[in-house]
Amino acid sequence: MSGGTAGAERRRRAAARGQTHLWAVQRVTAMLLGIAVVVHLATILFAVRGGLTAAEILGRTRGNGAWLAFYTVFALAAGLHGAIGLRNIAAETIGLRGRGADLAWLAIGLVTAGFGIRAAYGLFA
């Protein structure tokens, strides 16, 4: 193998390692979402029994560290899972691939998660 192709092969393998990590993150976040969505929906059904008021919600969420931790994990999982899924769809349908695109999708996932975490923190603080 010449120096050029060896270098290209090394770069390809480094990229493949990154892609494997993205795949693993998507599978782990899928497992987390499976649990989180059930808890989230069950909580909604439980909370709306006999009506719902803003004060009631805030009474439950303000200062509740466990609640904030749960929704932080939920938002992170949702943001990353969605962005990686969209990345795969974009790669296969419009051929949007490459390191730049991957970093952009990762940023989109983290920003989406950031919005969720900010909303959760707004109900916590």
Binding site: R13, A15, A16, R17, Q19, T20, W23, N88, E92
Partner: peptide, 12 residues
């Protein structure tokens, strides 16, 4: 395993 990993490999 390195050769079959990633978007060009099994993960697609």
């Amino acid at each position: 395993l390195d050769a079959v990993a990633g978007d060009a490999g099994c993960h697609s």
